[in-house]
Write a protein that binds this DNA or RNA. Structure first.
Length: 637
RNA sequence: GCUCCCGUAGCUCAACGGACAGAGCAACUGACUUCUAAUCAGUAGGCUGGGGGUUCGAGUCCCUCCGGGAGCGCCA
């Protein structure tokens, strides 16, 4: 459909150009709310009316007379609603067009894209807040891949930060464990979940232990034992846990970038040199920032300290260095090595300063997407500004995108259900922010487990004949579908106030609803004769449909043909919920149709044939949407 | 104080500045001897937080007020 509307826009410009000035982006098509207005609509008459100071209806009439008959036999133009220019598609031509192009996908592009997501501090288990990040990031990466871009997914590992130091201090000095004992811990991520919140409370109350923690932090940075070895062991084990949990819901990484390596290779000094040369990084004249090197953030007219008066770098420094490396501003590259492999053999690379021979098979990025929650906007905006200053982008195309989303919070009821402490001031709030530090969160693995158990109950009810492993496999797929759909169905700018009631639902606007739709559809196609599916050489004539069915049939065709547009605009708007909403609407329309019109049991072969064509089209387009969202499709459910 | 985001049905959310504001949940009424009822059909539910403006057209843009959230450190 996108190819079709682009062609129509180009031809309209050609036909109208002698009389009107029309720019490239002026003609945009949408599907009108009601079929009596036509099938594709543009508001061009309104636009031209504004420019020429004429009445929309008059301009519209002129356009119709210029375009009338020019798009036959596929479409005819008309005017409605005071100035909408509408195209009515010929049912037969449109169906043929869709069937002939059923396999066509967006073409390959050259622009390399790096998507950074997940980036969890490797000092405790992942929680629901992290799941939102990873589900959005993974769906973003899949969308970009679908649209033809080469994509590399990076996961940033802050293995030398204060958060890792917190738990290292906790294990070595609060719990007084030896390095060997620590290496014997069976499930470090889960154990550290509690250790981390205990340490946080302890440090808040006792300034002396905070100093001790700072000494641990320094020891890690200077690679002294036992702190460094313990920190390294912990961050690797916890990272492995995160990777395992994410893999269980279909989320993968190509490259792990470790902060340790950025520090070891001194990438920040290189970045600082470039920034100083360009005058972006400079010494502040503000008496309060005497001796500090700063970057001016113009939007709020602030100076952000990047290098402290004592010469050390602040938090934003490593982000700048990392970003510079992503877009290829350094001659030097990281050494890489294999970190691990997924079950099917796909390699996860990691940076490693100690050297390694691996060369990574991906060049510097043309565009960078950082999937980071909205609370980091301030720093991310500064980085975006710096990159723009270094290399002004051609209009509109930003090389650096902060793919921002709101946090996940818990409803007070949910906090009580989890038996977590709730302070009096939190009690009054509409929601409570999740916090690994405070231990107020739902662990990702626990949520996945709960979803699996619940879906298993439903699977068992419906499929008593299947083996236990088969039922379990289906339950897992449904749990993944429910979770991933839940995480992207909301507008990225909205806070998700998490509640088990909504998250554990399998009916209505949920992932399992989409899965169920496709499962049933596949089941029909499996049971059909091969002859019913053949297309080539057969005349397709939808005129045998009665008017009620015809209306629903073409409603579905229009809807399913709009998928690629929806994926593209989801990226433009930086809001992936549009993909979920579109898939849901398509399923609703299909289920309604399915209920009213039999396929296998339809005795009239021409009718049966047309309905099968619709199933094939829906399967193809809906299948793509589910793949983009990472929602698996079970054989049965 | 400054910057950004949000306010739509009882609840959770949709609606590139476009045609009559739509779904899901909850409630109520129906449809399984049927291609899978994790489904479908129907009923009920709205001054899109208030007030101004811009426009052929505003839930959407601008101003203002009210209510909620986040960010603004020589922390990370």
């Amino acid at each position: 459909m996108k190819a079709l509307t682009e062609e129509y826009a180009a031809r309209m410009r050609e036909y109208l150009q002698p009389e009107f000035t029309i720019d490239e982006g002026d003609i945009r098509f949408s599907i009108p709310p009601n079929r009596r207005y036509g099938d594709l609509s543009t508001t061009l008459p309104f636009l031209l009316a504004k420019r020429t100071q004429q009445k929309p209806i008059e301009i519209g009439k002129r356009l119709v007379s210029l375009l009338s008959g020019k798009f036959l036999p596929m479409a005819e133009v008309s005017l409605a609603g005071g100035g909408f220019l509408n195209f009515t598609l010929d049912r037969r031509c449109f169906l043929r067009y869709l069937i002939d192009n059923i396999d066509s996908r967006p073409g390959a592009r050259n622009e390399r894209i790096v998507v950074e997501h997940t980036s969890i501090n490797p000092n405790k288990s992942a929680h629901i807040g992290h799941l939102r990040n990873s589900c959005l990031g993974d769906t973003l990466a899949r969308s970009l891949e679908y649209l033809g871009y080469p994509v590399e997914v990076q996961n940033y590992i802050d293995d030398t930060g204060i958060q890792v130091a917190d738990v290292v201090w906790g294990l070595l000095y609060m719990l007084k464990m030896s390095a060997d004992e620590i290496r014997g811990i069976e499930d470090p991520a889960a154990l550290l979940w509690d250790v981390y919140s205990r340490v946080s409370r302890h440090l808040a109350e006792d300034p002396e232990s905070e100093k001790a923690r700072n000494r641990v932090h320094q020891a890690i940075e200077e690679r002294r034992e036992p702190e460094y070895g313990v920190a390294d062991w912990i961050s690797c084990r916890v990272l492995e846990d995160h990777i395992r949990v994410m893999a269980s819901i279909g989320i993968r990484y190509n490259l792990l970038v470790r902060e340790r390596d950025i520090i070891e290779l001194d990438f920040f000094s290189r970045a600082a040199r470039i920034l100083t040369e360009k005058g972006i990084l400079y010494e502040s004249t503000d008496p309060e920032k005497r001796g500090c090197r700063v970057i001016r953030y113009r939007h709020e007219d602030l100076e952000k300290v990047v290098i402290r008066s004592n010469g050390t770098a602040t938090y934003i420094a490593k982000d700048l260095a990392y970003t510079f490396w992503k877009v290829g501003r350094f001659k030097e590259d990281f050494p890489f090595r294999e970190f691990s492999r997924y079950a099917d053999g796909q390699v996860i690379l990691t940076t490693d300063f100690r050297g390694g021979r691996e060369k990574r098979d991906f060049g510097p990025a043309h565009r960078v997407f950082n999937v980071i929650d909205v609370r980091q906007s301030y720093l991310q905006n500064i980085i975006a500004q710096v990159l723009e200053d270094l290399e002004p982008a051609p209009c509109g195309e930003r090389p650096f995108v902060h793919f921002s989303y709101e946090m996940v919070a818990l409803t007070p009821r949910c906090v009580r259900e989890l038996d977590l402490p709730l302070s009096p001031e939190d009690e009054k709030k509409p929601w409570v922010e999740v916090s690994g530090r405070k231990g107020i969160a739902v662990k990702a693995a626990d949520l996945i487990q709960q979803l699996t158990v619940r879906s298993r109950v439903e699977v068992d009810k419906r499929n008593p004949d299947l083996s236990e492993p088969a039922r379990n496999a289906i339950a897992v797929q449904i749990a993944v579908g429910a979770l991933r759909y839940f995480m992207i169905k909301f507008n990225a700018r909205a806070v998700i106030a998490f509640d088990f009631k909504d998250a554990l639902a399998f009916e209505g606007d949920t992932g399992p609803y989409l899965q169920y739709t496709l499962v049933r559809l596949n089941s029909i196609l499996r049971k059909l004769n091969k002859a019913d599916q053949a297309v080539s050489g057969v005349d397709i004539d939808p005129s045998c449909l009665d008017s009620g069915e015809s209306a629903e049939y073409f409603e579905l065709l229009l809807q399913l043909s709009d998928g690629d547009n929806r994926v593209e605009s989801a990226l433009e708007n930086q809001d992936l919920s549009g993909i979920a909403n579109h898939a849901f609407a398509l399923c609703q329309a299909f289920n309604r149709y399915y209920h009213g019109y039999p396929v296998i049991n339809e005795p009239e072969s021409s009718l049966r044939f047309l309905r099968v064509q619709l199933l094939l089209l829906v399967r193809e387009r809906l299948g793509r949407l589910l793949a983009i969202m990472g929602i698996p499709v079970p054989e049965r459910m």
